[in-house]
Structure formats: structure tokens, C-alpha cells
Design a protein around this nucleic acid. Structure first.
Lengths: 192, 192
DNA sequence: GTCTGATCTTAATCTAGTTTAAGCCTATTT
DNA sequence: AAATAGGCTTAAACTAGATTAAGATCAGAC
């Protein structure tokens, strides 16, 4: 299986040379993930940057009461990793789990660092990728401190219309920070 | 006035060469900001990456009702900018304003891009800086979907003890996404 | 085919947090 | 010294959203 989707992803930012693509080839691992399979579990360090080729993942935390809270969804052409845990090598407080059967490309820490050193433009590419994800997250924080649950749900539908169709509502409720029951009520209110 | 604080900041990540420091020198602007002075206003593109040497800023949005919502505080040794607006050149939806008299170092877009090209390690440095800020924000999102206002306040005190002493409680309430009245109640409950 | 478990909904009750309004304190302006 | 304004608190009435519980629906496993 090829790493072509990843190369295409990088080249949306900066074109790569043939030699650079070959360096990548040797450092990227292809993997199939089953539905509900975890690729990161609380208590373990996050060992990979994971690029989603196909399928959909969620990143979540579990609180003292055992309730799960979805921090992030990642589908095709998106990255998912606990960045803090990955770089520090510290145990993660998060889980990452496939919501659908998935195909991913993964890079381990030592390999990523090798690639940063040998393909300097990757520093810039990832800088831009993280900047974009930062802006997304900032908008989410703004929503969370300024909007009602209904507004947040409508924004979610607007921003991720495809995801909204693929995900069970319980997962969406967890992402929005509300109970499934209240999301159900919101949906009823919107429909009428 | 010197750009030494900025150089020291960068060198916490990677040492710079003499020539690189000189390149920086020519592209960084030193500026004094008065209390309550805005360095970014809604409707205008964000023109600078701003590095805080002294003082404290808040970034906020204003909703339809006219209520302000604090997204971020930035004090000494921290950056503040609307990254999305800065890179896209689009009008910002945010304000950035000094809470205390401040001293800053600013870099304009064309200068930052010049520096990225001529000091390649800056790509890596800013990649790491944004990664760290991303992790911070992610923790905040997690808190906002999983914790009560009291827990969020206690975490804030724990994480930014100095900031908590410098800021009026109204600003902290706005950051936590609650009313000043409710923060007052929380403080009373904690004290007893 | 049916059993099991996950998903969705509705409704009653409860609680965290808002709104409104008032009063107090301190700092700054006149 | 008085006047104004921003920040902090208290309390009563209100509302967004949680909790509990029950029933309906649907999908995959056996």
C-alpha cells in the first residue's frame, strides 16, 4: 500500500522532491484499524503521529465518574495525536479510537525527528498544519464561552456536515459538552 | 531599546548565530502600549505577531449583545496574534487590548516571512511554540466540556497564579465563560 | 429469527449558572 | 470635599441544561 495520500497532503503546502518522497517512504507505516480499536490509551505515551487515509477517529478523555468527553474527531486527510504526550514521552490522559474501520499512515517519534532534520521544509509544513488546527480550536473555545448548546450544535452541523451524518448523536453530544438527552431536545426544537 | 528578550526567548528552543540575530534586529519593531490601548480591532486584519516583553494583554470577541468574551491572556514572554487573520490577511473578528501598560516587540507579516526564509530554524521554533499553545488550548477545551465553573476557576488559579492576582475578576469570569456575579459566588463558596 | 446491546426520544424533576437589581468600596476626577 | 466610575458582592427570580427513568427502535451476533 502506498503513502501517496500523505505525499499529496504535504504537497498541498509545498512540493516535495523525489529524494524527499523516498525518505518519507521508509519512515511511514501503513496500518488497518478496526472499528472501536484504540490506537492510544490513557496511561501510555502517544507513540505516533497518525494521518487518517480512510475512516474516522475520536479523541476523548474519561473523567472520574467514567464519563467520556470527545475532544476531537479526525477523518480523511486529517492528523490525530496527543501532541504533548508524543513530544514529552509522558503518559497520555487521552484515548484515540476508531469510530469506523480505518486506514492510517503513522510516523514514530524518532522517524518524525529524522524527517524534520532531513526534509527541512517539513518543519514549515507542520508549522502551518498546527497553526490551522490552532485557529480551529480557538474558534471552538470562543463558542464554548459565548454560545448556547443549540448555537454550538448548529455551528457543528454547518462546519462538519459530512461528519454529522457519519457520527452517532451520542458522540456529537459528548463533543459539544452536553448530554445525549439534551441534544435530542435541541434537535426536536430545531425541527419544529 | 533592544530585542534581547526576544532573542532569549528563541534561544530557549535553539541557539541563534550572530548573523541571525542581526537579521532579526532589522525586522522587529519595539513599541510601548498604554493601558486599554488596542493593538487589534475587529474588522481589521491582524498585521503583527506581537511578543510581550512587559505588561499584559487580553484577546476578546464581542457578541451580538455587546458582551465581551476573553479568549486569551498574554503576559511576559508570550505571543499574541490572531493567527488566522494574520496569514490570510482577512479582517479579524477579535480585539487585542492592553490590560496594563505594556512593552512589546512586533513583527509584520512580510518581515516574518522574510525571517522564516532566511533563518530556517525559525520554522522549527515557531512550530514548537504553536504546538505548545495548541496543547494548552486543547486542555482548555477539555475543561470546558467536562468541568464545572468552580473546577475551571480552581484550575485557572493553579495554572496562572500570578495572572490571577493581576487581573480584575470580571476579566477572569469572561475568560471562564461565566458571569462576574457567579464567579463572586464561587469565590465565596471556596473561601468557606 | 431472536437476543443483546447500543442508540434515540420523551418527560418529570432537579441544579448550575444567568438575570436583574441593589448596595458597597476604592480610585480617580473635578 | 464631592462626584463619578469601575469593580465586587449579595440575593431573589429565572432558565439552560443535567439527571433519572422509561419506552421505542435498530443492528449485529449467535
Amino acid at each position: 500500500m502506498s503513502i501517496q495520500p500523505l505525499i499529496a497532503h504535504f504537497e498541498r503546502y509545498i512540493p516535495l522532491k523525489e529524494t524527499e518522497e523516498q525518505l518519507l517512504e521508509g519512515r511511514v507505516t501503513h496500518r488497518q484499524i478496526k472499528r472501536k480499536q484504540a490506537i492510544l490509551q490513557e496511561g501510555f505515551p502517544c507513540r505516533h503521529y497518525t494521518f487518517v487515509v480512510e475512516g474516522c477517529f475520536r479523541m476523548y478523555a474519561v473523567d472520574k465518574k467514567g464519563t467520556e468527553h470527545n475532544l476531537q474527531f479526525s477523518a480523511e486527510q486529517d492528523w490525530i495525536a496527543d501532541i504533548g504526550s508524543f513530544h514529552a514521552g509522558r503518559p497520555s490522559a487521552l484515548f484515540i479510537e476508531a469510530i469506523e474501520p480505518a486506514v492510517v499512515l503513522q510516523i514514530e517519534k524518532q522517524d518524525l525527528y529524522f524527517l524534520y532534520t532531513n526534509i527541512p521544509k517539513l518543519d514549515r509544513i507542520f508549522k502551518v498544519i498546527v497553526e490551522n488546527k490552532y485557529v480551529e480550536l480557538q474558534n471552538r473555545v470562543l463558542q464554548s464561552i459565548s454560545s448556547t448548546a443549540q448555537e454550538r450544535y448548529l455551528t457543528f452541523l454547518d462546519q462538519y456536515p459530512k461528519l454529522a451524518l457519519r457520527l452517532p448523536n451520542t458522540q456529537i453530544a459528548s463533543y459539544l459538552g452536553i448530554t445525549p438527552e439534551f441534544l435530542s431536545k435541541i434537535r426536536k426544537d430545531i425541527a419544529s
